[in-house]
Simulated assay, not measured.
Amino acid sequence: MAFFFKQWGEWGRSIGLASTHWIDRDGTVREAGASPYVAGFAGIRRVGKKRAGALLDGREHREFPAVAELHHVAA
Rank of each mutant, 00 (worst) to 15 (best):
M1T: 02
A2E: 07
F3M: 10
F4V: 04
F4M: 10
F4L: 12
F5Y: 14
K6C: 11
W8R: 13
G9V: 13
E10K: 15
E10F: 10
G12A: 14
S14M: 11
S14V: 02
I15L: 14
G16W: 08
A18L: 08
H21Y: 02
W22P: 05
I23Q: 08
I23G: 05
I23V: 15
D24E: 10
D24P: 02
R25E: 08
D26W: 00
D26F: 09
D26H: 07
T28Y: 11
T28L: 12
V29P: 07
V29W: 07
R30C: 03
E31V: 03
E31D: 04
A32W: 01
A32D: 04
G33V: 08
S35W: 08
P36D: 00
Y37R: 15
Y37K: 15
V38G: 00
G40N: 14
G40D: 13
F41K: 03
G43D: 02
G43V: 05
I44Q: 00
I44F: 04
R45F: 08
R45W: 05
R45G: 02
R46Q: 07
R46A: 04
V47K: 03
G48E: 05
G48I: 09
R51E: 04
R51I: 03
A52D: 07
G53P: 00
L55H: 00
L56C: 02
L56R: 04
R59K: 15
E60S: 11
H61S: 02
H61Q: 10
R62A: 12
R62V: 14
E63C: 11
E63T: 14
P65M: 00
P65R: 02
A66T: 11
V67F: 04
V67D: 11
A68R: 11
E69L: 08
L70E: 08
H71W: 01
H71T: 00
H72L: 04
V73N: 08
V73M: 01
